[in-house]
Design a protein around this nucleic acid. Structure first.
Lengths: 167, 167
DNA sequence: CTCAGGTGCTTCGAATTCGAAGCACTACTT
DNA sequence: AAGTAGTGCTTCGAATTCGAAGCACCTGAG
C-alpha cells in the first residue's frame, strides 16, 4: 500500500513490517471478534475488559486503569462497563482511597464466561495466527513486539493532548 | 492479560506475541490517527483508502478490492468513499467489465493530500514503532508478519458467513 | 480553612461502524 | 432464452465510538 516512488528512501522493511502489522491485527481481530460473539456474546472490547479484570490479583481495577489497559476512550469504557454490569459480568463500586474513583470487579459469572470463550479463542489464535510460524519465530515476535510496546508505553503518554485549557 | 491458572498449557510465547501485537497496533493506530487528523484531516481509514488507491497502477480500484484491502465492511466503505468523494479526493465511476461494479479513482487533490501527510506519518512510525528495534529485528518482524498475513489470506475467507459462498 | 486548578468518571451529541435487506446485474443451468 | 443462484454496491436502522462539557472530589498554595 502506497510506496510512492517519489518518497524519501524509507526503510522498506520498516514499511513492510508496519503494513503487515496493521493487516494482521485487523484480520485477527475480526476473526476473534466473531468467535467471541458466537461463543459468549462478547464484543472484543468486552473480552479485553473481562480478561484484564480476570488477570488482576483481586479481580478489580479502576476505570482509568482499564481504559489505559485496552487503549480505549473513557467515555467508551463507561458505556461498555455499563453493558457488562447489566449482563452481570462485572460490578461497580466506590474506590477505597479516592471517592471519585470507580472500581470495577469481575463476578463469578464473568469468570465463567471468560472460561467458556477462552478455549475457542486460543484455537483461533493457533490456527490463524501461530500456525504458520516456527517456534523460534513466535519467540522472536513476542520479544520484538514486547520491546516495541514498552517503548511506546514510555515515550509519549499520548501525544500532545493536554487536558482542555492552557492552550 | 488473563492467563488463568486453570487453562490448558498454552504457548506462553504465543500469547505474549498476541497481546503485544494487539496492544502495539492499537497504540500505533491511535497515534497515527491523530497525526493524520492534524496534518490532513484524514481518518485512518480514509488514509488507508487513499494509500491503497495511490499504490494502484492506475490509481483506481473496485469497491470490493478496497474493502478487502483495508479489512472493512462494505457498507462502511460506501460511507467513507462518499466522504472522500465529497471532499474531492476520489471519484466514483462505473466499472468497465461489470455494470454492477463501481470503480474508485484517486484525484490529483487526493494525491496531494497523501503527499502532504506521508512525511509525518513516516515520522510517527520511525519514532514510535521502529525506534527501539535493531535493523535485524525490523527485518525479522517484516518477514514473520508477512508470513502470517499470507497464511491468514489463504486459510479462512472469513469465517461462517451465510452470504459468501456455499456453506 | 478556602480557593484555584487538576483528576476520575459520566453524560451528551455527533460521527462512524456494522449487518441485514434491497436493488441491479452477472453467471450458471436447462 | 428463461430461471435461479450469486455478486457488487447502497440504504437503512441500531449499536458503538469519541471528544467536549459537566459534576464531584482531591490537592496544593495561601
Amino acid at each position: 500500500m502506497a510506496e510512492e516512488e517519489t518518497l524519501p528512501p524509507l526503510d522498506p522493511a520498516g514499511l513492510g513490517a508496519y503494513f503487515a502489522l496493521i493487516e494482521v491485527s485487523s484480520l485477527l481481530r475480526h476473526t476473534v471478534e466473531q468467535q467471541l460473539l458466537d461463543a459468549g456474546d462478547l464484543s472484543y472490547v468486552q473480552f479485553q475488559l473481562l480478561a484484564t479484570l480476570g488477570d488482576a490479583p483481586d479481580g478489580s481495577r479502576r476505570m482509568t486503569e482499564l481504559a489505559d489497559g485496552v487503549v480505549y476512550s473513557r467515555s467508551g469504557l463507561t458505556y461498555q462497563v455499563g453493558l457488562l454490569e447489566k449482563a452481570g459480568l462485572v460490578t461497580r463500586g466506590p474506590s477505597a482511597d479516592d471517592d471519585r474513583g470507580v472500581t470495577v470487579s469481575i463476578t463469578e459469572a464473568g469468570r465463567d464466561v471468560l472460561a467458556k470463550v477462552f478455549p475457542g479463542h486460543i484455537d483461533v489464535l493457533r490456527q490463524l495466527f501461530l500456525a504458520p510460524l516456527a517456534r523460534k519465530d513466535i519467540e522472536s515476535l513476542a520479544r520484538i513486539l514486547t520491546d516495541v510496546r514498552d517503548h511506546m508505553r514510555t515515550v509519549p503518554p499520548r501525544s500532545a493532548k493536554p487536558r482542555r485549557k492552557s492552550g
